[in-house]
Design a protein around this nucleic acid. Structure first.
Lengths: 228, 228
DNA sequence: AAATATTTTTAGGCAAACCTAAAAAAATTC
DNA sequence: GAATTTTTTTAGGTTTGCCTAAAAATATTT
């Protein structure tokens, strides 16, 4: 991996965070997140495109390339390991931890981070409960949430069902939802808090993307972990 | 204390190190130390002068101001504490430690450094044996060396005499050297390894700067600690 | 679909930190 | 002390990352 400037790293990280709830990111969003101006974002996007860290076409938003995602995970790994260190070893409070880690995360020695990881005992979550990517960029999905709390368009994997009654399982079977099913919430109807979800079929080509409706009561019993 | 750029901090640190064996630093020396060009050094000196970190007059070299010295000690403190951390906690080898600390030293949170210091048990020397400045910028003088090993023009304070015989003390008395005397070696004669030293009189104005000659035998019995 | 509003990009500038080449000052040699 | 060499500074240029203001593209109203 090459070496990137603090500024480049901050852009990559910000795109990653915004992308989480969206997939693609806009110029204005990113400018707001980074407290800079849209024109500066455009400048940087051109640069990151030539470095192959983002896919970008003028006027059509951008998203991280595979290399961009890898880099983002490296930076997040650094950030969260330092946060863990600051809270656990130096006894910083949770609120103070973030600002200092913002600086430390740009020190780029891989060996430093891997040794820090080992020294800390390979922690899996930072003090805020966010998962820490491992040496290979593998990141555990966040803590599970019920479908009601899942952000729109956030791909997630079903991992828990709180009510395991026969009736419940019958309903789940009918809706073709099981442990490990990957889905995303496409809409939330405020009238009755029912959800419209899409299930991602593993084998079948991306056809058959029919939406399924889930009642509020059911949605509160199904838990999932964020993907990606 | 204000915030300084990584580049500014590197200049200040470099001046401090060169100054150690000289007092005043030249443009070319500094350019060599920082692996940059003399013209760039001149640029930066103008800037550091307006920030009152150095005393500088075109064509006449420069030296750190009091604020500059304070800043240098803060940076050295950060550097050496990180070195200690890397070696002691993360099990880096002595040689690896320096390069990583070069990056970490520019993270400027005072609280971080003071908490790190505490976490490490207030170490007094880094893995290379160099002293670590304390929270107030107080730095212990380095390990003592005999006059024979003192670099030229390095101000030092006499702190130990290995042979305390009557003859020895008589000679020291005659040369007006005692515990606490501040001196520097101005020349070393290779013919007989005798030294020409200057004693700094505390009270008297900087007049009376007569040089004294010290034989090799005597010089090996007088120990001093680096000043400043 | 035309007019308006919003978003995004382009154009041109600025400061930091570097560079090269030429000029000026200081040091050294003759 | 005049001539030469070395050191240092000035002048002008580059890249990075930011800015403002104007132009272009897209989205939203009417």
């Amino acid at each position: 991996m090459l070496n990137y400037s603090t500024s480049e790293e901050n852009y990559i990280k910000a795109i990653f965070h915004l992308q989480h709830s969206d997939g693609t990111v806009t110029t204005n969003e990113l400018a707001a997140e980074l407290k800079t101006k849209p024109a500066s974002v455009t400048d940087m996007m051109k640069k990151l495109k030539t470095k192959k860290l983002v896919h970008y076409q003028a006027y059509h938003g951008f998203r991280l390339s595979n290399d961009g995602k890898k880099l983002a995970l490296i930076i997040i790994r650094r950030h969260r390991l330092w946060e863990f260190f600051l809270a656990e070893k130096l006894k910083f409070s949770w609120e103070e931890v973030h600002a200092v880690a913002e600086d430390l995360e740009h020190v780029s020695s891989k060996k430093l981070i891997d040794k820090l990881d080992e020294y800390l005992g390979f922690p899996r979550f930072d003090p805020h409960g966010d998962p820490i990517p491992d040496m290979n960029g593998k990141i555990e999905s966040s803590k599970q949430v019920c479908l009601q709390d899942l952000p729109l368009n956030q791909m997630a994997t079903v991992c828990h069902v709180s009510d395991q009654s026969k009736e419940m399982l019958e309903l789940l079977g009918h809706k073709k939802i099981a442990m490990g099913t990957r889905l995303e919430v496409k809409r939330r109807f405020t009238f009755d808090n029912s959800l419209e979800i899409k299930i991602r079929q593993p084998r079948k080509a991306s056809a058959d993307q029919s939406a399924i409706n889930i009642s509020e009561q059911l949605s509160k019993n199904i838990f999932a972990k964020y993907d990606e």
